[in-house]
Simulated scan of single mutants.
Amino acid sequence: IQKRWRGYYVRKYIHNYYALKKYLEAISVNNEIVRSELQEYTEMKENEEKRKDLEKKEKEKKYRARKMHYLLSTAQIAGIYNSPFRKFPDPMELLLQNSKPLSHRRQQVKSPFAYELYDWPTCRRPPSVFTAQPLPPIDKQKPQGPFRDPAEVLWQRYKPLDPTLRVAASVSSPLEKAREEMKREEWRNCVHDNEFLPFSSYHKNEKYDPSICRSGKYVQETYGVKHFREVQPEKWVAEE
């Protein structure tokens, strides 16, 4: 009995099938409503963006027409947008007729007394004196006070260099300087007894002097020209 009662109680009050089904149906209806509202909001935003783009393009087109107002046709000469070979003029021609040319902007010169009038009740800034005339040139006379003569100051500034004995003396000793000079003199005045004549027949009849390390005569070796193997009869094996 308790088992059946617990089953009935759970199905009735805890896991009610019909209540859950009704809850899911309400959620699906709510989802449909939210989706439709989001769709309407998206369409409204897209339409607003398109309207802003159209307004921006129209504004740029009007500004371009005002800027190119000099291309408007006259009574004597037709403009580039009003060709005589066309049946109807270009829409840009009508826009040029309905627009006004751009006026030159003048730079606004700020009055020096404007901020004084603006700050007059509070007096936050002191009034300034407006001077339209330039300042007079500065006199090149000697200023009043205990100052030196300009000529004396310039002489002290540009006087020649007077180095001390330590700065003027050489770092190396006179003996080292004499040795260096002697080495340079020997290298410069070096005389060779044997004259070098590479392109003459002076050395043609000279006899070749063999070197100490070579005992044989200076002749062309036959190895590699007449044979490619060294012949050593003393190492041959005699036949019995």
Rank of each mutant, 00 (worst) to 15 (best):
K62F: 08
Q76P: 00
K183T: 04
E152P: 03
K110H: 02
K235S: 04
R188Q: 07
P101R: 01
E152C: 12
E234F: 03
Q76W: 02
N189D: 07
R4Y: 14
F113K: 07
T74Q: 01
K59C: 11
F147E: 06
H203C: 11
K67T: 09
P112N: 03
I14N: 09
E55Y: 04
E40V: 13
E40G: 02
M68D: 13
S128H: 03
G216I: 02
Q39S: 14
Q107L: 07
Y70N: 14
R51E: 14
Y9E: 09
P150R: 01
Y41P: 01
Q76C: 00
F199R: 07
A65V: 00
F85G: 02
R35P: 05
K61G: 14
D139G: 04
V109W: 05
T222R: 03
F196Q: 10
L161M: 03
L102A: 05
K207M: 09
K12Y: 12
E55F: 08
V237H: 03
Y208L: 15
E58P: 01
P91L: 06
G79R: 00
L96N: 03
L102W: 00
S172P: 01
V153C: 11
K142N: 03
E58I: 13
A132F: 04
Y115V: 05
F130W: 08
R11L: 15
Y13S: 06
L71I: 11
P89K: 03
K140R: 07
R106T: 02
E239N: 06
P101Q: 02
V225A: 13
Q2E: 14
A26G: 07
E221Y: 01
T164S: 15
Y202F: 09
L117Y: 10
L102D: 10
S173Q: 04
M92Y: 14
K56T: 14
R51N: 10
D149A: 13
H15Y: 12
W120C: 06
R11E: 13
E181G: 00
E32Y: 12
A238Y: 09
K61F: 05
E234A: 09
M44N: 10
E195H: 06
I14A: 12
G216C: 10
R66C: 15
F199K: 07
Y118P: 00
V34A: 15
Y218E: 03
K57Q: 14
G7N: 11
P163N: 05
K12R: 15
Y23M: 11
